[in-house]
Design a protein around this nucleic acid. Structure first.
Lengths: 335, 335
DNA sequence: CTGTTAGCGCGTTCAT
DNA sequence: ATGAACGCGCTAACAG
C-alpha cells in the first residue's frame, strides 16, 4: 500500500505538503492541490489513520458500552449514538457487558489501550472501577441511563422517579390499592429510582409502602416471569403489576397469559420502556416511554463537546422526561 | 500517561524487556517479570495499541456494516458478531448504511483508513465498489445475508429460496391460490431469492406466476403498509399475503388491522424473519425464521479464520437453513 | 506557500 | 535472558 511518501514523490512535493492537502490544513496552492489529488487517485492512496493517530493523539473513535444491544431500548440508543457520532466524524466501538462488572472492566481496559477519544457507558451495577480508571486517564466520559452514588460525571438519563410516580398515580387513579412492583437489581439506579417514584405516589395517596410488594430480580424476561408467579401467590393478590423495564413487563404479560389471567380484566399491567412502533402491530402495554434514540444523540453530542476542552467545565446532568402512554393493559380495579 | 520507557526505568530494565513481559513474547526471568509487573501496576501503565498497531500492522479490530441495527434481525446478528469477536480478542466497529450505497462507500473508506483487520458487510443494493476496494486492499471480507452477482467472496447467509418456497407451499396446502408477495427492492438478493422460492412453489403446484401479485418496495414497515393497501384493491383480492421481511410483515398486519380485515379469517399472512421471543408476548405471525445470532457468529468465525492466512484458500459460502414456524396468522382459504 | 527535522510508542532485528 | 538501534506512517514545530 502506498504511503504519503509515494504520493509525495509522484506529485513532486514533500510528504508534509501531501498531508496538508489531504487534511485541508495549513495552506497550499491550487496547483499543488491538483497535483497531489491526482497522485492520490493514481496510486489509490488511503491515509493510514493509525499512524495519524499516533502522531496526533486522536483516534476519532468513541466507545459505547451497554449491557445488551439486543434490548430494544439500547438498540435505539445505539442507533442515536452512531448517527450522531458518524455525522461528527467519529466511528463507534460497541460492547455488551451483560451487566457483568468484569466484562465492563475488560472492555474499558481494551478501549483505553485503543486510545478511544471518549466513552459512553451504561454502568453495570455500581462498581466504580471502570469510571475511575477512565477519569484517571483523562478521557471524556458520559454515563448513560443510570447514575452512580458519589461520582461527578457528565450523564444523560431519564427521570425514572417521575415516570414511575406517574405510572403509579395512573394505577391509583384507576382504583388500584394493591400494586406489585417487579424491579431489576437492587443496586442499579434505575431500579432504585423506579421504586422511589412508586413509593412517592403511594405515600402521597396516604397508602403504606409495603416492601413485600416490591420484588427485586434482573432486568430480563425470565425474571419478570418468575417473579410474577410469586406475586400471583400473594394473599391478597395485587390487582396491578408494574414491570420495571420492557423485558420484565413482557415476562409479566407472559406469566399472566400462561396463568389464564385476563389483562386488564383481572390484573392491570404497566411497564417502563416502550417497544419501537416498528416492531409492534397493535401496542397494548401502558408504559412510561423513554426517548432512547434521543438519549443516544444527546449523550454523544455532550461527549463530543467535551473532546475539545478536556476536563474543563462543570459536569453536566441531562435528565430527559419520560412519557406515559396509556393503552389497553390498564383498567379499573374491580373490587 | 506513562509509556514503556517509564515502566522500563521504574523496573530498571530496557523498554524491550517490558514489551516482552507484557506480550508474553520472547523470554525473561521470573524475577524480571515480577519487577516489570510491579512497575506496570505502580504507574498504572496501559499499553498503547495505536503504536503497537503501527508497528505490527494489526489492529485487532473488525468492522460490521449493516443497513440498520434497529432491525431485530441485524441486532441479533450484531450480538453474535460481537460475542464471537470479543472472545477472539477483537473489537467491533458498527455502522448503519440505511441501504445507501454512498454511506457504505464512505464507511468503507474510513474503516480502511483505520486499518481494520477485516470487514463484515451486508451490502446495500448491488454496488460492487466497496467490495472491490476492500479486496484491492487485501483485507479479509465476509458478506452477510446477501449475495452479489459475479463476485467471489466468503459469505454467510440463509437459504431464502428454500424458506420462501416452504412458506408458499404452506399457503398452497391451506388452499390459497391467489397469494400476494410484498417484497423488498428488486436489486437485493434476498428479494430476488424470496420471489424465486415463491415462484418455484407456485409453478410446482401448476399455478401461473402472476407478476402483478409481486409488489416491490423497501424492507420497511411503511412500504409493507402502503403496498398492502394496493393489494387490497386488487380484483380478485388475494387470500394470503407474504411479507418478505419482518418490517414488511408488520406493515401488512397493521394495514389489515386498520382496514378491519380479520387475520387469518379473511386473509392469511406469512413473513420472513422472526421476532426475538424476548420481545413478543404471544407470537402470532407464521414465519420463515433465520438464525440471525448464529449467522453473526459464523460470519465472524469465518472472518477470523481468514485473518491468519490472507487471501489463501477457496472462498467459502455458508448457507444456513431457515425454519418455518406455523402460528396463528395462517388459516385455510375460504372460497 | 513549502520543506526539514524530529518524534509519537512500540516491536522487529540483530547483537550480546 | 537482555539490550541497542531502527523504523512503522504520519504530522507538529520550526524554518524559509
Amino acid at each position: 500500500m502506498p504511503t504519503v511518501l509515494d504520493v509525495a514523490k509522484c506529485a513532486g512535493v514533500s510528504p508534509i505538503t501531501v498531508s496538508r492537502v489531504i487534511n485541508r490544513s495549513g495552506s497550499f496552492s491550487e496547483e499543488t492541490r491538483k497535483r497531489v489529488e491526482a497522485a492520490v487517485a493514481e496510486l489509490g492512496y488511503v491515509q493510514n489513520s493509525v499512524a495519524r493517530s499516533l502522531r496526533s493523539s486522536r483516534t476519532n473513535t468513541i466507545a459505547l458500552i451497554v449491557s445488551d444491544i439486543t434490548n430494544p431500548f439500547f438498540t435505539s440508543l445505539a442507533r442515536g449514538v452512531e448517527d450522531t457520532a458518524s455525522d461528527a466524524g467519529y466511528t463507534v466501538f460497541f460492547c455488551n457487558t451483560d451487566e457483568l462488572t468484569e466484562e465492563e472492566e475488560r472492555y474499558t481496559q481494551v478501549l483505553l489501550q485503543k486510545q478511544v477519544d471518549g466513552f459512553l457507558l451504561v454502568p453495570a451495577h455500581s462498581s466504580l472501577n471502570s469510571i475511575e480508571k477512565i477519569q484517571k486517564h483523562n478521557i471524556p466520559l458520559v454515563i448513560i441511563d443510570r447514575w452512580l452514588p458519589g461520582v461527578a460525571v457528565d450523564s444523560v438519563r431519564c427521570d425514572s422517579v417521575e415516570g414511575s410516580y406517574q405510572l403509579t398515580r395512573l394505577l391509583l387513579s384507576l382504583g388500584h390499592r394493591n400494586i406489585a412492583l417487579i424491579s431489576g437489581p437492587k443496586d442499579v439506579s434505575t431500579s432504585i429510582d423506579r421504586v422511589s417514584g412508586y413509593r412517592n405516589a403511594l405515600e402521597e395517596a396516604g397508602l403504606p409502602f409495603d416492601p413485600a410488594n416490591v420484588q427485586y430480580g434482573e432486568f430480563v424476561q425470565s425474571s419478570g416471569y418468575a417473579l410474577t408467579k410469586r406475586v400471583l401467590a400473594m394473599d391478597p393478590r395485587p390487582t396491578a403489576i408494574f414491570g420495571a423495564n420492557n423485558f420484565i413487563a413482557i415476562g409479566v404479560l407472559k406469566a399472566l397469559n400462561d396463568a389464564g389471567i385476563k389483562v386488564p380484566g383481572e390484573i392491570s399491567v404497566v411497564g417502563f420502556d416502550d417497544l419501537p412502533e416498528l416492531l409492534v402491530v397493535s401496542p397494548f402495554l401502558t408504559v412510561a416511554s423513554q426517548p432512547a434514540y434521543e438519549m443516544g444523540c444527546r449523550a454523544t453530542r455532550l461527549l463530543i463537546e467535551r473532546l475539545g476542552k478536556k476536563g474543563a467545565g462543570e459536569k453536566q446532568q441531562v435528565i430527559l422526561p419520560t412519557q406515559v402512554i396509556v393503552r389497553g393493559s390498564t383498567g379499573a380495579a374491580n373490587g
